[in-house]
């Protein structure tokens, strides 16, 4: 059952990702991408990583893609301006090489260590790790966001205003 579901969602993910780059209308692309993220979230659920699944849906499918859609609609991209997928032999070559490297790398990872499933998933564990072992990068992220806001305000302001 679990295996069958994995293949179903895996296939859906690949399909939707392909449709994302194949679609001529950018809005369709964005919506296919949301569906692809949803399939990824389903795969996370099957790995018992419930928090990751929720974050995937909330942050990627929710926040980020809505932002994408807003931008696409605001700048009013027309379907005709986008000719869809054009495949040159070089692109295929690069992609295949990368796939080969990736496959070789994954084959090298070996079996999943026992007990790996318990390591992820619970919000408590994530929170605890975030605020003890990784408290310094966590704080650095807050500085990063602050300076990004500051810089964006500067860039968005019209000249002459203080």
């Amino acid at each position: 059952m679990g295996d069958a579901l994995f293949y179903v969602f895996g296939a859906l993910m690949v399909l939707f990702t392909f449709l994302t780059i194949r679609a001529r209308n950018p809005v369709y692309s964005a919506i296919f991408m949301i569906l692809s993220f949803a399939s990824t979230a389903a795969l996370f659920v099957m790995l018992d990583a419930f928090l990751l699944a929720a974050v995937e849906v909330l942050v990627y499918a929710g926040a980020i893609m809505v932002l994408f859609l807003f931008v696409i609609m605001l700048i009013n991209l027309r379907a005709a301006e986008h000719d869809g997928l054009r495949v040159s032999p070089l692109v295929v070559l690069v992609a295949l090489t990368f796939l080969l490297l990736l496959g070789r790398g994954i084959a090298d990872l070996g079996p999943v260590p026992a007990g790996a499933n318990e390591l992820v998933g619970t919000p408590q564990l994530v929170a605890k790790t975030l605020f003890t072992r990784y408290v310094v990068p966590f704080e650095a992220v807050s500085i990063l966001l602050l300076s990004a806001i500051l810089g964006t305000v500067v860039l968005a302001r019209r000249s002459g205003e203080a």
């Binding site: 990068p137 650095a140 990063l144 810089g151 860039l155």
Partner: peptide
């Protein structure tokens, strides 16, 4: 983890400073 977050902090601010 610290390496990646620190690197992003540096580069994101530098993007802003380049388009200043």
């Amino acid at each position: 983890v610290t390496l990646f977050v620190g690197l992003e902090l540096v580069t994101v601010v530098l993007f802003l400073m380049a388009a200043y």
